[in-house]
């Protein structure tokens, strides 16, 4: 597909006027303050995203870089030629392979997030309820794994889960099983890997939310007739919901695009979008297609999350 448009020209005076106007705005310190996170987002998120999006509209080429350029500028005729290739996106929707990969990634991420929450919540609760040095100790234990390489820790799990690994040796020594279990190269190993790796990302926001929880509220609930379980579901859980949401997003989003864990712990039949992306990029050498996959993943992931957040904020304001 090719669209031909006339060149857009910014003449000297208008450009200067524009710059002056901008400078006038920036003078106000408040704009400057707001612009710092804005700048951060622009430099580290928006511009890279635009680059990826641009590549997704190109075609593959045997060249450096291995894709065609979108813009051709003919100086003599003042002609700007823009060629946009939407074929990658069409292919993305035509081939149900991608849909299957997206859905399976979402499924694996969702199940992992659920178990991370299930394990992370009691941990965060315990830490938030402990005091002084115990709390500091427990918190640093949560953060401690970050001191070693992520890759190394995943490799360690290979050692733990393999046929003659610790888990199987232990289960066989206590006589629970006769033949070693196959855990490695299954989805279960992927779940274990993701839950293990992302647990701190769940525990920390949960801890922050639970730590802020006023103990008097729990006592008030008990005082008004709540048994501990009721207190948990009626007070603790609803009030820690922001932490739950934050933790789940922090686990779910990277888990969807996870590549290393399924590659090392999962079986060859573990279909995940991160793996598909890798294959498109490295095996097919199709940078535009890989970019299209990445763009769609970002939109599919980020849009609903932004909508949820917006909705939650609106509700918060209305209340």
């Amino acid at each position: 597909m090719s669209i031909i448009a006339e060149s857009v020209r910014l003449t000297g005076p208008t450009l200067r006027a524009l710059i002056l106007e901008r400078l006038g705005q920036i003078k106000c310190g408040r704009y400057a303050v707001i612009s710092i996170p804005g700048l951060w987002l622009a430099v580290f998120f928006f511009i890279p995203f635009l680059v990826v999006f641009k590549i997704s509209l190109a075609e593959t080429a045997i060249a450096i870089p291995p894709y065609t350029s979108l813009f051709e500028f003919d100086l003599e005729e003042a002609l700007l030629e823009i060629s946009i290739n939407l074929g990658n996106y069409r292919y993305l929707f035509e081939d149900d392979f991608y849909l299957a990969a997206y859905l399976n990634s979402a499924k694996i991420a969702a199940i992992s997030t659920f178990f991370t929450l299930l394990i992370g919540f009691p941990m965060a609760y315990l830490i938030a309820r402990s005091h002084g040095t115990t709390r500091t100790l427990l918190l640093s234990l949560v953060i401690l794994p970050f001191w070693t390489s992520f890759l190394l820790r995943v490799y360690a799990w290979m050692g733990i889960l393999q046929k003659n690994g610790i888990v199987n040796d232990f289960l066989m020594s206590i006589g629970l099983i006769d033949t070693p279990l196959t855990i490695l190269q299954t989805d279960i190993a992927v779940y274990i890997g993701i839950v293990y790796t992302y647990l701190p990302f769940m525990v920390l926001p949960l801890y922050t939310a639970l730590e802020k929880l006023d103990g008097a509220l729990l006592e008030a609930a008990q005082d008004l007739g709540c048994k501990p379980a009721q207190t948990f579901f009626l007070i603790t859980l609803p009030l820690s919901l922001p932490g739950v949401v934050a933790g789940c997003l922090l686990v779910f989003i990277p888990a969807v695009g996870e590549f290393v864990i399924p590659a090392l712990l999962g079986g060859s039949d573990t279909l995940m979008i991160g793996r598909v992306l890798w294959d498109e990029f490295f095996l097919s050498r199709d940078w535009p297609m890989a970019s299209a996959v990445a763009t769609v993943m970002l939109i599919v992931l980020v849009l609903p999350i932004m909508l949820i957040r917006n909705n939650a904020e609106k509700q918060g304001e209305a209340a």
Binding site: F97, A100, S268, D269, L283, R285
Partner: peptide, 19 residues
């Protein structure tokens, strides 16, 4: 060719994932 590479890789992915 890039075109065959794509078909080949898709076929390979299908084989690996048992689809």
């Amino acid at each position: 060719t890039p075109k065959f590479d794509r078909i080949l890789n898709r076929s390979w992915s299908n084989t690996k994932t048992g689809r």
